[in-house]
Simulated assay, not measured.
Amino acid sequence: MTSKCCLLLVVMATVAGSVLGTAEVMSHVTAHFGKALDECRDESGLSPEILEEFQHFWREDFEVVHRELGCAIICMSNKFSLLQEDSRMHHVNMHDYVKSFPNGHVLSEKLVSLIHNCEKQYDSLTDDCDRVVKVAACFKVDAKKEGIAPEVAMIEAVMEKY
C-alpha cells in the first residue's frame, strides 16, 4: 500500500511539474512575442484602450474579440516569421520559435497542435484579421483547458529578459 502511495505521489509531482514547466515556457513566449506589439500598434489600428487591454491577454476578464487584435497578431507574428503568406501558422518556424526559449521543447508540440486545431475551426473565414482573432480566442481557451496558459505574474516576472 505504501509503495502504491509513493508511486502515485511521484506521478502526480511529475505531471504537476510538467504543467508548471509548460506554463513557464508560455510566459517566456508571451513576453517575447509581446515586445513586437509597440511596433505593430499603428500598422494594425489598435486604439490605446485595446492596446492596454491586449497586454493582459491571459487574464480571465480579457476578451479576444476585436478585429484589430487579429491584425496586430498578424503583424507581430510576421516580425518572427511565424506565419505563411496566407496568414496561417508556419509550423516549422513556430516549433523553432518556441524551442528557442528555455525548456521550449516541452511546449512546442502542444502549442502548435492547439493553434492548428483552432485554425481548422475558422479556416473558412476569408478576412485574415477576423480569422486570426478568432483563432487567438480559441487558443486562449484551449491553452487554459490544457493547463499551459501562464499566470500574469509569470509573464511580468520574465518581461525584463526581453
Rank of each mutant, 00 (worst) to 15 (best):
M1T: 13
S3R: 07
S3N: 12
K4D: 15
K4N: 15
L8A: 14
L8N: 09
L8F: 14
V11C: 14
V11S: 05
M12Q: 11
A13Y: 09
A13N: 07
V15E: 08
A16L: 14
G17R: 08
G17H: 07
L20N: 09
L20T: 14
G21M: 08
G21Q: 10
G21E: 09
A23W: 00
E24G: 06
V25F: 06
M26A: 12
M26S: 10
S27L: 06
H28L: 09
T30F: 13
H32Q: 11
F33K: 05
L37M: 11
D38G: 10
C40G: 04
R41K: 13
E43C: 01
E43R: 09
S44N: 08
G45Y: 03
L46H: 07
S47K: 07
I50L: 12
L51Q: 12
L51V: 11
E52C: 06
F54L: 15
F54A: 15
Q55E: 14
F57Q: 07
E60T: 08
V64G: 04
H66E: 15
R67F: 05
E68D: 10
L69E: 14
L69T: 14
G70D: 11
C71K: 08
C71D: 06
I73K: 02
I73G: 00
I73S: 07
M76T: 00
M76S: 01
S77P: 01
N78S: 09
F80V: 00
S81R: 03
L82P: 03
L83Q: 07
E85L: 04
D86L: 00
S87W: 06
S87C: 10
S87R: 01
R88S: 04
R88W: 01
M89L: 12
H90W: 04
H90Q: 10
V92H: 00
M94I: 08
H95E: 15
H95P: 02
V98Y: 04
V98P: 00
K99C: 04
K99W: 03
S100D: 11
P102Y: 05
N103S: 08
N103L: 06
N103F: 15
H105V: 15
L107G: 01
L107F: 08
V112Y: 01
S113E: 15
S113L: 12
L114V: 10
H116K: 08
H116R: 10
N117F: 07
E119P: 01
K120S: 11
Y122W: 05
T126F: 02
T126D: 05
T126A: 07
D127A: 02
D128S: 11
C129I: 05
D130L: 10
R131S: 03
R131D: 07
V133P: 00
K134F: 01
K134S: 11
V135H: 03
A137Q: 08
A137E: 15
F139R: 03
K140M: 08
K140A: 02
V141H: 15
D142Q: 15
D142V: 09
K144F: 15
E146Q: 14
G147L: 06
I148R: 06
A149M: 12
A149K: 04
P150E: 12
A153I: 11
A153W: 13
M154P: 00
M154Q: 14
I155S: 09
E156M: 11
E156H: 07
A157V: 05
Y162W: 11
Y162R: 01
